[in-house]
Nucleic acid binder design. Structure first.
Length: 639
RNA sequence: GCCGGAGUAGCUCAGUCGGUAGAGCAACUGAUUCGUAAUCAGUAGGUCGUGUGUUCGAUUCACAUCUCCGGCACCA
């Protein structure tokens, strides 16, 4: 005799076990039409689920986040159904929901073409319109294996073989299409309307590059056409922020075939770079670092000792001369250890904080290169702290402060923090790893920052905390990192003398705040969509004359602003003022200074903001103090 | 590295079912001196990513290769 409690605390008594859809129908016809699934005692279930005991019930529609997930998941099934209809020899594998959509992986002897995608999508529309009931049934594990083997679905059978014997599995059927799935699913394909197939790509079976490559079709699905259109518009807008596009448009940098994965910084991009570098230098000073500079290349022997050769040989660039092999440095840590090792170190010297804008070369796989985000020559805002064991917490904690402070100054408040633990390929004893992982976790917990665990993702010498920022399409890029290392100083024979005269191997904290300068600038460009705040903007103001007559006065203004240390450009061309404004606005210059006869006569300037606002006439002194005030805000104010 | 797509003027792109290519913007020249997002006219500009092959003839077809784009794997 279940009594069902609705979210508004209304109670519905039933005489016997009842299907969710029956309950929903008794609430109202409109709701019954919109219902996709339900939460019974907070567990997401199908509408066909039978409630036997007293329970709470919440009906899920496409308006709920869970409803959207169900919708997307069912759309993935619809995709598989359409593919099977058009390509009977295709085998289905998995089709999960992802952010903003779903994908489904298929095994097929040939590749899907973009044209195939169109016909598959049309088929999906056609199938959805048939308003198939989506039905659920359970099957024993062994029976399910046989079922999928018989239908030629070997990948599905393999998945089920990984499930413990004796378990029962749920299968979902719509028309003649059956798929193994945990569910829940929409009750009828008529709910699937607003979807679009986005792209086709290769993906390894079970995510392992030793396995066969499957064909993955990505799609997106929404509650209605309007939401779908809004999503597509959002993508279009995001593409306009692409740092590669803006890098060209704003004349910041370029890349070319002869140097894949390496950046040619143009004057404006390099100006931006230098401002960021100068900012970091101020922070290094504030946090008691010593900036150093170490060689670009070093004997292979050093890398063998440090462990890099064994772990990362593939990615290291090599060069040789006079029968000696050298590696171009992929990172600075072994070289910083060499600096630490010069002279005899005392426990009183610790913590010793060394920093370097280290130019590193890594032979990244060709398919991974991506604008500024993934390059083969990168500059880390690198640092290594040599510390005693009792200093771990204090130093790691200070690092978190530094990282969050810096990100805040650049206007990033959406930082994803990850703790990565021991990987398969590693050096060092398990007990040391235990200690290191616990230490980092404790620091995170005491700081009270939000973080997630990434098991197996640590560096080969120790666990790490990573800070990730998102690009305009929502892809995450690792920027800052804090890595605890109990291995490398010992491998490279570094030690200090403790209070009682013993030689002790220091612990090393590797850290980068921005990560790679290149990547950080890439994210920064997209974050601001090229509209850099005044302190970062390569050109802070452009001086535009209305006609030739004001050239001399404009030149004077230009000189005095330059003398103030401001980054200004002048545009004295014989062009209409509207044209000049357009050009400099497209260049996203924060302030335009308009000089006409009026300004010459009153010894003033007229100011226009990047957003098109007329800020009126003012003296040069007023303008410089305005810029100064705004620069002091860094990236924390308006952009 | 793997799967798929792409590479044509400085930029954005059109085009050639095999007969050596075109637009807009930019550049250059001239006219215009014009007050808040494009003044007008003219000129010049490309061995169609690279190599090899097929062909009377290749930017177009084939093969190889490089780079880029989207994923996957990787990411000290």
């Amino acid at each position: 005799m279940p009594t069902i409690t609705l979210p508004d605390n209304r109670q519905l008594p039933f005489d016997e076990p009842v299907r969710v859809e029956t309950v929903v129908a008794s609430i109202g016809a409109g709701l019954a039409k919109a219902a996709l699934a339900a939460k019974v005692n907070d567990v997401l279930v199908d509408l066909s689920y039978v409630i036997e005991q007293d329970a709470s019930l919440k009906v899920i529609t496409a308006k709920d986040p869970e409803g959207l997930e169900v919708l997307r998941h069912s759309t993935a099934h619809l995709l598989a159904q359409a593919v099977k209809a058009l390509f009977p020899s295709a085998q289905v594998t998995i089709g999960p929901v992802i952010e903003d959509g779903f994908y489904y992986d298929f095994a097929l002897e040939r590749s899907f073409t973009p044209e195939d995608l169109e016909s598959i999508e049309a088929k999906m529309q056609e199938l959805a319109a048939k308003e198939y009931e989506v039905t659920r049934r359970v099957m024993g594990r062994d029976e399910a294996i046989a079922f999928f083997r018989d239908s030629g679905e070997n990948y599905k059978a393999e998945i089920i073989e990984g499930i413990p014997a004796g378990e029962t599995l749920s299968l979902y059927q719509q028309g003649d299409f059956v798929d193994l799935c945990r569910g829940p699913h929409v009750p009828n394909t008529r709910h699937l309307k607003a979807f679009k197939l986005m792209k086709v790509a290769g993906a390894y079976w079970r995510g392992d590059s030793n396995n066969a490559m499957l064909q993955r079709i990505y799609g997106t699905a929404w509650a209605d056409e309007k939401a779908l259109a809004a999503y597509l518009y959002r993508l279009e807008e995001a593409e306009k922020r692409d740092h590669r596009k803006l890098g060209k448009l704003l004349d910041l940098f370029h890349t070319q075939e002869e140097a894949p994965g390496m950046i040619f910084w143009h004057a404006k991009g390099w100006q931006l770079y230098r401002v960021i570098e100068a900012y970091i230098r101020r922070k290094l000073h504030e946090y008691d670092y010593q900036e150093i500079r170490t060689p670009q290349i070093a004997d292979k022997i050093l890398w063998e000792k440090s462990g890099h050769w064994a772990q990362y040989r593939e990615e290291m660039w090599m060069t040789s001369t006079e029968n000696r092999d050298y590696a171009i440095k992929p990172m600075s840590c072994p070289l910083h250890v060499q600096v630490f090792k010069q002279g005899l170190r005392s426990y009183r010297d610790l913590p010793l904080r060394l920093a370097e804008f280290g130019s590193c070369h890594r032979n990244e796989a060709s398919g991974t290169l991506h604008g500024l985000m993934r390059v083969r020559q990168l500059t880390q805002d690198d640092g290594h702290l040599f510390i005693r064991e009792d200093q771990i917490e204090a130093e790691a904690s200070k690092l978190l402060d530094l990282v969050y402070e810096v990100y805040h100054d650049f206007g990033f408040d959406d930082v994803h923090c990850r703790l990565s633990t021991r990987p398969d390929k590693r050096v060092g004893e398990e007990a040391v790893w235990d200690k290191a992982e616990i230490a980092l976790q404790q620091v995170l917990e005491r700081k009270g920052v939000q973080w997630t665990l990434q098991p197996g993702d640590g560096a080969f010498y120790g666990p790490k905390i990573d800070f990730k920022l998102r690009d305009c399409l929502g892809r995450e890029w690792q920027c800052g990192t804090v890595q605890l290392d109990f291995q490398m100083p010992g491998r490279l024979e570094a030690y200090y003398i403790d209070e009682v005269g013993n030689k002790v191997v220091p612990i090393m904290l590797h850290r980068a705040v921005l990560g790679s300068m290149e990547r950080f600038i890439g994210v920064l460009i997209e974050h601001f969509a090229g509209k850099f705040p005044v302190w970062l903007a390569p050109v802070q103001a452009s001086i535009l004359t209305v006609s030739d007559k004001q050239a001399e006065y404009a030149q004077k203004i230009y000189e005095s602003l330059k003398k103030e240390g401001l980054r200004v450009e002048k545009d004295l061309r014989n062009e209409k003022i509207g044209f000049k404004i357009r050009e400099h606005t497209l260049q996203k210059v924060p302030y335009l200074i308009i000089i006409g006869d009026k300004e010459v006569n009153s010894s003033q300037i007229t100011l226009r903001s990047r957003s098109g606002e007329d800020l009126g006439a003012m003296s040069l002194a007023d303008f410089t103090s305005l810029l100064e005030k705004e620069s002091a805000l860094l990236g924390r104010g308006k952009s």
